[in-house]
């Protein structure tokens, strides 16, 4: 295990007695590609506490997306454990993992991936519907979230009628709708222009600061890295460094090698 990573992840700045929402222990993910065995993620151990705003960075092929898939319970590790709010995902059956994901993890995808046949509001309400939240509560929360992402006036529009930035903001609102323990965002700004990316980051930072929403990004977008208060760097599937920044100095912190 990367000791530097472990020690630096002890407690997020600005939060005392923070709740541990995510923990990985010696996480490994290997793929067989013909005779070749590829270690996409190797011996990754780190902790994320409530309210963190973390960027997982690294060059292409460093294992960011694979790690996010493991953290989101979409993929199973070859070895090691992922614990979310104390629950070991490996101990869950596939159907239990789907249900766990529904209640505890929010997803934001690079390509937005809104359901095209549903309006912005319906997309936001989608996970709540799966959770069985009643209609009035769904409506209240979707209105609240759409307002938070600045899209109240676009609530009844379908994704095809929204810009990329608007779609990604709807995706953020959707990710938060189920009141997850944390939100996983895979390259959330990769498809956005700088204005839209900046607006999206403002929204996510505000949600993080005001409501304590925990965000975990994979990115190699410097704009996102600059806004992150913790940067975990992956190289060849291993944690190379794990740096924390003070909220006031985020964007200026130097990288500590592991």
């Amino acid at each position: 295990m990367n000791t530097a990573a472990r020690s630096s992840a002890a407690a997020p700045s600005g939060h005392t007695h923070a709740e541990l929402v995510l923990e990985t222990v010696n996480l490994d993910r290997t793929f067989q590609n013909g005779p070749e065995r590829i270690h996409a993620v190797s011996d990754v151990s780190f902790r994320v506490q409530r309210g963190e705003f973390t960027a997982i960075v690294g060059p292409s092929g460093s294992g960011k997306t694979t790690l996010l898939n493991l953290l989101g319970g979409l993929d199973s590790p070859s070895d090691g454990h992922v614990r979310i709010l104390g629950t070991d995902l490996s101990a869950l059956k596939a159907s239990e993992r789907v249900d766990f994901r529904l209640h505890n993890i929010g997803f934001v995808f690079q390509a937005y991936n809104l359901i095209p046949v549903l309006s912005a509001r319906e997309n936001v309400e989608f996970t709540m519907l799966l959770q069985g939240v009643d209609a009035s509560e769904r409506h209240r929360r979707s209105s609240e979230l759409l307002e938070a992402v600045g899209l109240s006036s676009e609530a009844e529009r379908r994704p095809t009628k929204l810009s990329g930035g608007q779609q990604q903001r709807v995706a953020v609102a959707r990710a938060l709708a189920s009141k997850p323990a944390f939100v996983l965002a895979d390259e959330p700004t990769a498809n956005l222009d700088s204005t839209s990316a900046s607006a999206l980051l403002d929204i996510m930072a505000r949600l993080n600061e005001r409501e304590g929403t925990t965000f975990l990004f994979s990115t190699h977008d410097q704009r996102v890295i600059d806004r992150a208060r913790r940067v975990v760097t992956l190289v060849d599937g291993r944690i190379d460094s794990d740096d924390r920044r003070d909220p006031d100095t985020a964007g200026t912190a130097k990288t500590n090698p592991a």
């Binding site: 789907v98 991936n113 996970t127």
Partner: peptide, 16 residues
């Protein structure tokens, strides 16, 4: 395919 994958990722079970 991708949309169905997203539905599953978001928490829609296979039966649904």
């Amino acid at each position: 395919v991708r949309e169905i994958g997203v539905l599953m990722a978001l928490g829609m079970n296979r039966m649904k």
